[in-house]
Amino acid sequence: MQELEQRPGGVTGPAPAVLAQGVTKRFGGVVALDNVTFSARAGEVTALVGDNGAGKSTLIRCLSGVHSPDEGGLFMNGAPVTFSGPNDARLAGIETVHQNLALADNLDVAANLFLGRELSGGPRSLFRLRKKPMEAKAAELIDEYGIRMPNIKAKVGAMSGGQRQGIAIARAVGWGSEVVLMDEPTAALGVKETGRVLEVVRSLADRGLAVVLISHNIEQVMQVSDFVWVLRGGHMIADLRAENTNTQEVVHYITTGVGLGA
């Protein structure tokens, strides 16, 4: 177990919040990830980019406990971890904001924030929901994140894209997570809302979280990220410091597999 770690690019520092090392994942005869290494540090926005089918979703699912790697391992803060399901990952402090937000449209904000983790009086009360504490906490989180919500008891399905995104993010962050995986957070949003979400992404990292950002939009990625990792055909072909590269080069990596110049 190493506290200090040699990072590619020649930078040393404390162990990453999450590290996937030598991960291989196969589905039937297809190799989705081949000996992939990826890491994200606390306080940084680490982007994961690549073309469709490159394996981004698979890697994220390995990190969030949906899939188990066939080979290789996961580490958090230097210690090895294994996840047998999404619950384990969440307990370890990894939260995901899915591309489709994974919200139950027919339930209200509090129900969504506490989905799968409902507060209840336990067996003695026949697992009665403790609605007031959940609603209070929901109001608190909404307030803390400044999401404008005229009616907190409304069903989530009736809210705007921005509000729903806000709820999904608040849910991921509000449980005291260390690592937040965000899958295409701006895909369904308009220009103005996108800008705001990117601000949020940056500020999450400033709070000390390790933010992993998947996006197709390289321009956006370059705006907010500290590091950019490129997946291509199941292989991790590059990990770049954002300040040392640009949109053009990243796109070149994605499409051709190589960088620009020396």
Partner: peptide
Amino acid sequence: MTPNMTAVAERPSLRGAVAKQ
């Protein structure tokens, strides 16, 4: 510094109003 998502949720929802009705 708490991330401020006010602006994210800015656009009032016409859909929401109709749904409530």
